[in-house]
């Protein structure tokens, strides 16, 4: 079982953007695009998160990327599992929120 605890917003968007291989700057741009400009990943935060995710085996660096100076990363099966788990958790949060607050919000 992976996941168990909530992912941070940064990690969630990093994983989501790595469904296709991307380098660091590409991840930043994709997270910003998906969130409609709301999520701006800071370089240090992103770098720390990428290293943590590599250690966990949720992402891997892609071998033989065309420009070897720019490392590319991609989601692994384990990472996809974590992301699916998180999505179920988020759905539960939304369902419960809507149920309690009704359509009032």
């Amino acid at each position: 079982m992976v996941g168990q605890t909530a992912l941070t917003e940064a990690v969630y968007y990093i994983l989501l953007s790595l469904v296709t291989p991307r380098h660091g700057y590409g991840i930043m741009q994709e997270a910003e695009r998906m969130s409609g400009g709301r999520v701006k990943l800071a370089a240090g935060t992103l770098y720390g998160a990428l290293n943590g995710l590599l250690d966990k085996g949720w992402i891997k660096s892609v071998p033989g990327a065309e420009d070897s100076r720019r490392k590319e990363y991609v989601l692994t099966d384990k990472g996809r599992e974590a992301l699916t788990w998180e999505l179920d958790r988020l759905k539960e949060l939304v369902e419960n929120g809507e149920m309690v607050l009704g359509g009032a919000a």
Binding site: T8, E9, A10, K40, L41, A42, A43, G44, T45, G48
Partner: peptide
């Protein structure tokens, strides 16, 4: 564009 090194609380706590 914006240039930040540590934006979220976790990375600021780590720092």
């Amino acid at each position: 564009g914006e240039f930040e090194l540590n934006s979220d609380l976790d990375s600021r706590i780590q720092l």
